[in-house]
Simulated assay, not measured.
Amino acid sequence: MSRIKILHVVRPAAGGMKNHLINLVRYTDKKRFDVTVACPPNTALWDELVALGIQTLPISLVGELSPTRDYAAVRSLVKYLHQSGTTILHAHSSKGALVGRLAAIMARTPVVIFTAHNSIFYEEWPEWKKKLFARVERFLARFTDKIITVSDALKQELMEREGLPVKQLTTIYNGIEVDRFNAKVDVKAVRRNLNIPELGPVVGTIARLAPQKGVSYFLKAASLLKEYQVNFLVVGDGPLEETLKQEAAELGLQGRVIFAGRRENIAEILSVLDIFVLPSITEGLPLTILEAMAAGKPVVATRVGGVPEAIVEGKTGLVVAPKDPEALAVALAGLIGERDRLMRMGTNGQKHVREKFTVSMMVEKTMELYQQLLAEKKLIQGKGQN
């Protein structure tokens, strides 16, 4: 039996979405599926895919709407879909889904899937833009066989805000390679490399420094904990980097907050943390909290998106309201210095991730969905399921 051709379509991706896609294509069964990824060249995602030997297709896709580039990307995709005989188009992110699904409609690709990684209703968007985007999504959903959401909270939002039917939506949780975050590390050497003082616990966040990640609230919470001998760590880069550094200085956090920039050795960095913080304003199901739990670290995160689905309150971490630095500071103050409680939460977190959020689970459920849709359309032998 010939392999089923799959084309993944994605905009320039970093962080969680990039890691999600790489894990998905890397571990998809190559005996059953022939996988290609369409994405912009000269990006971190492209370079990693090439290094892994994954087939790639260059397209001119950018994050923001760009009629000229988007039209060129649609044309490239339509040509490829026709020539390659692709059976499944799997789009990621709202922008990838817009361009990918338009191409799939024009090329009459048999199976069309969209993974929604995050809310499209970013708070900084004006209301007219949110309504327009929801209307476009409703239209394109008519040509989509299944929409995967990475959390039940995101699934509920798409039902309520876009009016999508429940039968069209399915939740497949993000997954990680758990063992990568449980290796032995020279903690003292990592602290030195990050310029973290030898004394005092480390409370840190790893995030793109963009508005939706809420790092400003992390800094405000840190400023409320000045009497504690705590080192605060911010790992990541992004458009707000200089603004956040200036805010830290204005809050009197010189010498207390270390901005480490973008780092690739996330497992090593997690090893030096005593508590991991995710202060986001919006999320789907962030990989960073799963990675932190896999590394045996308690998590304090905001109650947004799928975060409460990943954290067992009081057992693997604590959940607080978003945009509330006082609540975040109170949660951290209650954990700092409670060594036994931190260790217990960390152990619980490792067990929880192994039971619910592994890469193998994520990939297997995605492949099962492929098989189900192919069978329903009588493209393979088998019985479709609802």
Rank of each mutant, 00 (worst) to 15 (best):
S216N: 03
Q254K: 13
I6F: 10
F276E: 06
A295L: 11
K365A: 15
G100C: 02
K95R: 11
M106Y: 05
K79I: 00
A103L: 12
L52S: 04
E48H: 00
D145V: 08
I380D: 08
R341S: 11
M159E: 14
E355K: 12
L89C: 14
E64N: 09
P12G: 05
D152C: 09
R3G: 00
G204M: 10
K5W: 07
I269G: 02
G296H: 04
K130G: 00
F139W: 13
L52K: 10
P110C: 10
T43W: 11
K226W: 09
Y27E: 14
L240A: 01
Q350A: 05
R11M: 10
L253G: 09
P322M: 12
I176R: 01
V50L: 10
E291Q: 15
F33C: 11
F143W: 14
R191C: 02
D145A: 09
L251V: 03
V111L: 07
R101Y: 10
R101S: 01
D179A: 11
H92T: 08
Q246K: 14
N23L: 06
V99Y: 05
S223I: 12
E137Y: 03
A103V: 09
S216K: 14
P308Q: 03
L57D: 09
L199S: 10
S360L: 13
T144Q: 02
I269H: 07
N348D: 09
R161Q: 15
V359A: 11
A91Q: 02
M17T: 15
L373H: 06
G236D: 04
P201C: 10
Q212T: 08
E198D: 15
G16K: 01
D29T: 06
G175Q: 03
A51E: 14
A294W: 13
L251T: 03
L273R: 11
D179T: 09
V9I: 15
R138H: 08
L158C: 07
E291T: 12
A134W: 04
V353D: 04
V257F: 09
A248I: 08
G261E: 01
G16Y: 02
Q83R: 13
E338M: 08
A189S: 14
L81F: 13
